[in-house]
Amino acid sequence: MPVIEVIFGGVILGGLYALVAMGFNLQYGVARIVNLAYGEFLMTAAFAAFWMFTLFGVNPILGMFLSVPAAFGANWLIYRVLMTPLARRARTRDQLEGETILATFGLLFVLRGAATIAFTANDRYYDYLGEPLRLLGFTFAANRVLAFATAGVIATAVWVVLQFTRFGVALRALAIDPVGAQLVGVDVRRLSALAFACGGALAAAAGTLVSTFLSFNPAIGIEFTMKALVVVIMGGIGNMLGSLAAGLMLGVAEALCSYYVDSGLTLAVAYALFLIVLVVRPRGLFGTA
C-alpha cells in the first residue's frame, strides 16, 4: 500500500475526529463545560445506530435524523438540570471547569456502566456499505468515504451557521468573552444550553458515523473524549477551524503510526502530538489568546 493511500485513509479518519472535536469545542469553548462524558454520548449514538440497523434495517445515515435531535434534547436537559446549578455557584471560570470535570466524570461512569449492563461489554459490528470504492485511482471502503463526506457536510454546515448567522455570531461572542457578550444583549444561560446541546448533537452524529465502519463497545467513549480534548487544545479552545485542522492532523498521524508501527498505539500518537503542542505552543496551534 503506497504512503499516499495511507495518508488519504488518515484524512478520512481525521474528518471524523474534526467532527468529534467541533462538538466538544462547542461544549467547552462556548458553554465552558469540560464534559468528560462526551464520548459516552458518541458511544450511545453508535449503539442506537447499531440497534436501528440490525432490528429494523434503518439506514444509519437516515437514522441520524432520529438520534441527533434526541441527543440535542438530552444534552439540553443535562445542561439545564445538571450544569446550570454548577454554573450558578461557580465564581470563576477555573472553578466552573473544576466542578464540571468532577460532575461529568461521575456521569461518565454512570453512562458507561448503564450501557454495559444494557448492551454487554462485547464488541459490536454491522456491515453497512462494506464494498470497496475506487476513487482517484485508490481503493477505499465505501462506508469510510460516506462517513467522511457526511462529516464534511455537517462540519461545513456548523461552520456556516457560526460564521454567517446571528445565532453563530452570538455563540462566537460567548466563546471569546462571556461578560462582554452579556453586555451586548446575549442571553448567556440560554445560548450556553443551546451550544452544549449542539455539541451533544454533533457527538451523536459522529457516533453514528463511527458505527458504520468501526467495531465498538461500551468502553470506547473515553478514547474519543481524550482525542477530542487533545484536538481542541491543539486547535485552540473555541476555534472551530483550528479543531478541523488539528483533527485532520491527528487522523493522518494515527494512520501513519498504524501503518509503520502498530495500530494499537493510537492514543499514544494523540498524546505525543498533545505533548509537542504543550511544549512548543501551549495556547494551541491557532490560538490567539
Partner: peptide, 13 residues
Amino acid sequence: PFWFSVLLGIVFM
C-alpha cells in the same frame, strides 16, 4: 461490576 460503576458514578455526583 457494572452496577458498581453506575452506583459509584451516582454517589460521586
